[in-house]
Write a protein that binds this DNA or RNA. Structure first.
Lengths: 253, 253
DNA sequence: CGTTCATTTGAGCCGACTCAAAATGGGTGG
DNA sequence: CCACCCATTTTGAGTCGGCTCAAATGAACG
């Protein structure tokens, strides 16, 4: 209720902290991408009132712990994260990477417990939508109801499509598709689609694509030699995005 | 309302036809598995009133056409079906197989259009839940709302898990896992978990598992020589299910 | 400036794919 | 009922891509 954090002392790094501070989605930079974007204005206002602003996460910190009770949905505000889980034999499996405006925690609806661990790949901030506040809204707001179903359907569709496409691509095709997809999503967020930092390691990419990190590295090396990309450590520049896209689209040699 | 089913003329093949006949979920053999099973009784009764019984499909007939407008959810009553789609280059990709009591059409929530084609693999019957009847119920029935979210979450979770596990298994492990999974699902339905008919072709299995049909055939051949299964055409008997399960669980050689 | 981790590069091997042909089974029509 | 035809499945031989193991290079951090 009352603002209990640094009422007088100004915080240099983050001008709007506050663990449970009210969120203003309308003034958020992500307002065209984020969950409220597809809601009628008055529904968005109601949703806004139940959204909590989470505090900043350090790189490596977990936003969601797999196996814990599902009590909220989360939306990234800034930074990036990886969604992953462990198979029975203990191998880590990366389900995907999360960018600002994307929602995580949806798989929790299956069993009331989160199935994926979600961990920040760099300093990351997020919003939190507690389920016990969301549930009543689902009864009252048809648009929100529709939107949550859409989000789930989209996640499902994306998962199916990803499995389908990775399954029929060779290693280079998979890496190409990965880069093209990331590029597209960054562009949606107003960032450069051709020049960006890979916040995840080669190993993370490999475990996401069902490859080994050596193979990912070799694929990038091939692209570099072909003049399609420029790679220096985790910074990458796409010189011929169309070549990557076409290679990801169908399994060219 | 009134019993309109063969009051005088007995139908030999199918005792309960009728395209839009009322459905009684309580007297359905699937009542412990199907969608209403997890609803409070009074909600189940309300849902029942909007469920339509579809007419029987011949083998090969489509229950859902990919790309058409989403207007209903479907639940299989008997038979089996495959869910599939085509990639950009025209290759068929099998997303999975559907057994009685399982719900299909959920991916349609992503874009209001079905993303997968669903086709019967044998004579198959189904129930239909029109969206325009379902939507108002989602407002009134909290249990149903919860259940639809659960179904979507489960589909998502299953898709993620499948991708994860297939990605780290060799060919035999994938086929073993496929058989073990099918066995488990058949058992849930009161059918024999060790002796059943594969209603899908080797090619369908292959396209589902990301293999070629020759490799699937070879895997089955290996299992047969090991004395783990008996295969005659599409009839299969699992002689050592535990061996298959353990091989699917982790990528043994 | 040195330590440590991530990434790149190399050599060799194995498994799944491709292409090809034989065998099996189911269905149809005579 | 039988013979035939067709699709499906099985089996075989050879190739190649990605994996494994290993070492070198590069980058990041104190």
């Amino acid at each position: 209720m009352k603002p209990q954090r640094h009422t007088s002392a100004p915080a240099a790094t983050d001008s709007c902290r506050g663990a449970l501070a009210r969120v203003s989605c309308r003034s958020c930079a992500l307002n065209t991408l984020c969950l409220p974007a597809r809601l009628p204005p008055q529904e968005a206002r109601v949703l806004e009132s139940v959204v909590e602003r989470g505090r900043q996460l350090c790189a490596g910190a977990s936003l969601i712990r797999a196996g814990t009770r599902m009590d909220a949905l989360y939306v990234l505000r800034s930074g990036s994260a990886k969604r992953y889980a462990f198979t029975m034999n203990g191998a880590e499996r990366v389900h995907g990477f999360v960018l600002p405006g994307e929602t995580v925690g949806l798989e929790g609806f299956a069993s009331d417990r989160y199935a994926c661990e979600v961990a920040a790949l760099e300093p990351t901030s997020y919003c939190r939508i507690p389920l016990n506040r969301l549930e009543p809204l689902l009864e009252q707001l048809p648009g929100l109801r529709r939107e949550v179903l859409r989000l789930l359907g989209e996640a499902l569709d994306e998962s199916l499509r990803l499995r389908a496409e990775l399954g029929m691509c060779d290693a280079r095709g998979r890496v190409a598709r990965f880069l093209a997809d990331l590029s597209r999503r960054l562009e949606l967020r107003g960032l450069s689609p051709t020049q960006f930092r890979l916040s995840m390691s080669r190993g993370d990419i490999a475990r996401h694509l069902g490859l080994t990190l050596e193979t990912v590295s070799r694929a990038l090396g091939t692209f570099k030699r072909s003049g399609w990309v420029e790679v220096r450590a985790r910074y990458i520049t796409l010189l011929r995005p169309e070549a990557l896209a076409s290679m990801g689209g169908y399994a060219a040699s």
